[in-house]
């Protein structure tokens, strides 16, 4: 059986907000290591990779690997019924037809349980290689969100080029062009999460669909910083670390040059 108790139930809401625009169903894999999800959007252009490590739960029991296929839209509806301060327990049997969500209010004066039907999902599992990224950019997640939103107001595709001087985001649309360059902050005055850091072994440049990048920024409430990893001619990875718990990562296939 599987049983996991999460003290910060609001975290589940944030995780679901970060995926609900991209996928409608997915297999949550329960394993002794933690709860994970890998799923592609319907066009197979982007991939979501979530890990919530067992150590991050207040109580975690998983005897064997259990795939928990869930409709994300319905899951969002159910988790919305939890208060953001509630303690959430997720429970299911080894071959589950149903999964139970137990919500306990912080003051322990209200207990709710919801049972949701599982579904069988045949999804393609991708082997994402352990990559050494040619360029890694760490920046405030709110700044990345703002930047993607601004770029999307002008164009559909953003070209991201990273040099040691900084990261340049460029787009072109019917009304004109936009370029935003973010430079690594030189001074040590900022808090770590307010800094932009660039590490490169060689300059990288590629184009990506802003529609997807904007969806990824729905993960902003999960982390004060976001990390972009790029390798020439390979998908970009956009990672939001969840403190003491794991991550939400997105992979996005590049645009092809004409």
């Amino acid at each position: 059986m599987f049983e996991a108790r999460l003290l910060q139930g609001g975290l589940l809401k944030k995780v679901l907000d970060s995926i609900k625009d991209i996928i409608t169903e997915g297999n949550f894999d329960c394993s002794p290591n933690g709860l994970s999800l890998q799923a592609m959007d319907s066009s197979h252009v982007s991939l979501i990779d979530i890990l919530l490590e067992s150590e991050g739960f207040e109580h975690y029991r998983c005897d064997r690997n259990i795939p928990m296929g869930l409709n994300i839209t319905n899951l969002v509806k159910m988790i919305k019924c939890a208060g953001s301060e509630d303690i959430v327990t997720i429970k299911c049997e080894d071959k589950p037809d149903n999964v139970t969500f137990l919500f306990e209010s912080k003051d322990n004066d209200k207990i709710s349980d919801f049972e949701m039907k599982t579904m069988t999902i045949d999804d393609e599992h991708l082997l994402v290689p352990d990559q050494t990224y040619t360029a890694v950019v760490k920046m405030p997640s709110a700044e990345f969100q703002r930047l993607c939103r601004d770029m999307a107001a002008i164009g559909d595709t953003v070209n991201i080029s990273v040099t040691k001087e900084g990261v340049r985001f460029s787009t072109t649309g019917d009304m004109g062009t936009a370029n935003i360059t973010v430079r690594p902050n030189p001074s040590g005055d900022q808090k770590e999460e307010e800094r932009t850091e660039v590490q490169i072994t060689e300059p990288v440049s590629a184009g990506f669909a802003l529609r997807y990048l904007n969806s990824f920024t729905k993960a902003t409430p999960l982390s004060p910083t976001v990390t972009l990893g790029m390798v020439p001619n390979l998908p970009i990875v956009v990672e939001y670390k969840i403190a003491d718990m794991g991550h939400v990562r997105y992979y996005l296939a590049p645009k092809i040059e004409d």
């Binding site: 197979h44 991708l126 164009g155 669909a209 998908p235 992979y251 296939a253 645009k255 092809i256 004409d258």
Partner: peptide
């Protein structure tokens, strides 16, 4: 802007 590639072109399936 060019066409859109998909992840199957980069990552193997299991």
């Amino acid at each position: 802007s060019g066409g859109q590639s998909n992840l199957g072109q980069f990552f193997a399936t299991r």
